[in-house]
């Protein structure tokens, strides 16, 4: 972790002490408890010293063995010229997360994509519909336990 990243991290920790560094990432990454997510995100965008104004990417990772979904947000700050990865973990049994679409409008569609493929329900999302698949599609294909009789598996001996 570089010096600048350390200062950014301390700045974030000063607003929410539950934020920890995420070791499972190759780049600068923090982990936030899911109930604090919106609060931290708002701070990240609105705080003048941080100003992470751009939401580059949002995705989810299915950790089936641990019973968790990991939500990953990639933020970018023009002021610091720094990318940060914000992750949060939500239980696989109750896949609810708070929507950040009020902070970054693009999150509305990125969250729709994640909902479509992972079935994560975003609270306070303005328009939570499937994005890619048909509306009557059953199941969420990117989950590890998704099974489709028509899916062609690679047959390796």
């Amino acid at each position: 972790m570089s010096e600048r990243e350390a200062t950014i991290f301390s700045l974030i920790q000063s607003c929410c002490s539950e934020v920890i560094l995420n070791e499972g990432s190759g780049s600068f990454s923090i982990q936030v408890p899911s109930e604090k997510l919106v609060f931290v995100m708002e701070h990240l965008k609105k705080s003048e010293s941080l100003a992470f104004v751009m939401l580059l990417d949002h995705l989810a990772v299915d950790w089936k063995e641990m019973g968790e979904f990991e939500l990953v947000y990639q933020l970018y700050s023009f002021k610091l010229d720094q990318r940060i990865e914000v992750t949060t973990k939500i239980p696989r049994a109750i896949p609810n997360a708070h929507s950040v679409s009020r902070i970054w409008p693009i999150a509305e569609w990125q969250e729709r994509e994640v909902y479509d493929l992972f079935g994560i329900y975003y609270i306070n999302h303005p328009d939570l519909r499937r994005l890619f698949l048909e509306d009557d599609w059953k199941g969420f294909p990117l989950r590890k336990d998704y099974e489709d009789p028509f899916m062609l598996e690679l047959v390796k001996e």
Binding site: S25, G26, S27, S29, V72
Partner: peptide
């Protein structure tokens, strides 16, 4: 067991 994020500038953006 780590995550990696590779970025490039394509003709249309990042």
């Amino acid at each position: 067991k780590k995550s990696y994020f590779g970025q490039v500038e394509t003709a249309r953006g990042i």
